[in-house]
Design a protein around this nucleic acid. Structure first.
Length: 405
RNA sequence: GCAGGGGUGGUCGAGUGGUUAAUGGCACCGGGCUGUAAACCCGGCAGGCUAACGCCUUACGUAGGUUCGAAUCCUACCCCCUGCACCA
């Protein structure tokens, strides 16, 4: 690939590259000297469950690896101690060395589904922050002015709106920036929320007489609701360790509009290919449903296998297209006797409360053996040794087996 | 410590004595439609009792009080935020 081709390749799925000219220079230098670029990405040590939102940046890291460069996956175990830079949530829990080690292993298992282990270094910023000491930290702090730190949009805004800013939040960018110094990073990746911190890294590197890193900003992926960014706490995420059927279902539930965004950020298809698909769908040549199925299968193939993807699709079609029952249905045992239907639903965990169970029944969401039940007063006879099939909504199934009391 | 602002259901955010289990958005759940768990439309969204009409309990930071009646007024307390003191 020529340098121009490389730049185009690396640009996909990014929001901004600061500065592209610097990146070009670094790529040229690397090609000339044969020394790979050091590409840094910092991860939160407390949340090792990777979801599709995280994979957006991981795919970009992989792009660098494909060009022969070195990825440094930095686990911010020290940064984790000083708190959440967003100011949204309370201080993060303090992790023990063992917990951090476990989380790191979990990370590895997940990121290596996309990244090349031979071109990935896992590091921890406590390695240099622990030895820096209070004195070193103060010296570090002397390199940056208050005004510079307060330039950050978030701080500026919160100051203006008289919302609180904890002191340690001002320190956060310093630590993150110093990580780049310690690692002599050539490139740092992060989401839009990390832009400022990464720019501090550039300034600090210059302070320490290093070449400033290139900052590459990746977009935040919207969650399955299509509104808020994907995150575990909002419950709108698709975890890469989730079972294939679950992933398939969740991916089919995203809106047709959002699907293009997922194509762009969660597949390796080139922009032209995606645009062509979109044009075909909008012209009515391809059914959006089929395009979405393809998306789901591509993503599942990345984290499971092509076979798993096919099985997930078959299962989905069986339930939603043919309205048949799934292959594997959990069985639960229950005392053989006459159960009023709402009680039965609560007992089996299909409803949270009897009030909810009643609502579900009234709304026509409950079936027994495939037959819709709309009478909340019905008593279901569960006989010992016999099974009944309960269904709530379109996709919750449960077999109930009666056992003698 | 002082001054000011604030704490409402999963979330955001209305409501300042009486159709209030509490407007509305979002999220979520059920139904319809569909080659989609899309879009759109309809319904639901504290809990308990009843086959059902309905009844009853909790609920607007906490605890009391005023009132026929309070999320709304009063008192005390708790928590959060902003500012002041000030200058290592």
């Amino acid at each position: 690939m020529t340098i121009d081709e490389q730049l185009a390749f690396l640009r996909k799925g990014t929001v901004e590259i600061i500065r592209e000219a610097d990146l070009r220079a670094k790529l040229e230098k690397s090609a000339r000297t044969g020394v790979p670029l050091r590409v840094k990405y910092g991860a939160d040590p407390t949340a090792p469950d990777i979801h599709l939102g995280h994979t957006v940046v991981i795919r970009r890291l992989r792009a660098f690896q494909q060009l022969g460069h070195q990825v440094i996956f930095l686990i911010g175990d020290f940064t984790g101690l000083i708190g959440d830079p967003s100011g949204k949530s309370a201080t993060r829990p303090q992790l023990t060395r063992e917990e951090i080690a476990i989380n790191a292993e979990t990370y590895k298992a997940q990121i290596f589904k996309l990244l090349d282990p031979a071109k990935t270094i896992i590091d921890f910023n406590s390695r240099w922050m622990d030895t820096l000491g209070s004195e070193g930290f103060i010296r570090l702090a002397s390199r940056v002015t208050v005004k510079q730190i307060l330039e950050r949009d978030d701080f500026e805004q919160r100051l203006r709106e008289e919302r609180p800013i904890a002191l340690h939040e001002l320190l956060y960018p310093l630590v993150q920036g110093y990580d780049s110094v310690a690692l002599e990073a050539d490139v740092e990746f992060g989401g839009t929320d990390q832009k400022f911190n990464m720019l501090v890294g550039r300034n600090l590197q210059r302070e320490y007489r290093q070449e400033a890193q290139v900052v590459i900003i990746t977009p935040l992926l919207e969650g399955t609701d299509g509104v808020q960014k994907m995150s575990k706490s909002l419950g709108n995420y698709i975890g890469i360790n989730e079972p294939p059927q679950e992933m398939f279902g969740k991916l089919m539930s995203i809106s047709d509009e959002l699907m293009w965004r997922y194509y762009e950020l969660c597949t390796d298809l080139r922009a032209e290919e995606i645009n062509a698909m979109r044009a075909a769908a909008e012209a009515g040549e391809r059914n959006p449903r089929d395009v979405k199925v393809e998306l789901a299968k591509r993503i599942i193939t990345d984290f499971h296998s092509a076979d798993d993807a096919q099985i997930a699709e078959d299962e989905f079609n069986r339930i939603f297209r043919s309205k048949e029952i799934p292959e594997d249905i959990e069985t639960c045992e229950i005392k053989a006797e006459g159960w009023p239907l709402p009680h039965l639903l609560v007992e089996t965990g299909l409803a949270e409360s009897k009030a909810e169970a009643r609502r579900l029944i009234e709304q026509g969401g409950v079936r027994i053996g495939g037959v819709r039940q709309t009478d909340t007063g019905i008593v279901v006879g569960i006989k010992s040794g016999e099974e009944s099939l309960l269904q709530v909504g379109k996709r919750r199934f449960l077999r109930v087996r009666g056992v003698a009391a």
